[in-house]
């Protein structure tokens, strides 16, 4: 049952990534074609655009949701692949705990950066 709920959350996280990750890709990697969410024009990674997005509450919230979704989806997928190699039950427990710890540490670092970045740069 817990595996089933883990799988359902894996799919939900995938849909969240499809939407928010797609928005991020369009904003940063298709900036010259679409030009969205880059108020200072120029490159999407120019400081003026990065600081504007960093101070915007919408982006702070979506970055944190995207961070959580990618870490869960990615580590659950990695766990699935590793389990297919047939590790012992003890190794399975270690893999699961290790990935949860790594995910939580990375989530804390990324969330701290997203929140701390809200106070950077000058207002455009």
């Amino acid at each position: 049952m817990r595996e089933t709920s883990g799988w359902i959350w894996f799919i939900i996280a995938g849909i969240v990534i499809f939407i928010l990750g797609g928005l991020h890709m369009m904003t940063v990697h298709m900036n010259a074609i679409l030009g969205i969410f880059n108020p200072a024009a120029g490159d999407a990674v120019d400081w003026e655009n990065v600081s504007w997005r960093s101070r915007n509450l919408f982006f702070t919230v979506t970055y944190i949701f995207l961070l959580a979704a990618v870490l869960y989806h990615g580590f659950f997928g990695l766990r699935t692949i590793l389990f297919e190699l047939g590790p012992s039950r003890g190794a399975q427990r270690f893999i699961t705990k290790f990935l949860w710890c790594a995910g939580i540490v990375l989530f804390v670092i990324g969330t701290y950066a997203a929140i701390a970045a809200r106070s950077i740069g000058k207002v455009l």
């Binding site: 595996e3 766990r79 047939g86 012992s88 699961t96």
Partner: peptide, 10 residues
């Protein structure tokens, strides 16, 4: 998450 049942992966 709990461990899954183990199958041989030849």
């Amino acid at each position: 998450m709990r461990e899954t049942r183990q199958f041989d992966n030849h």
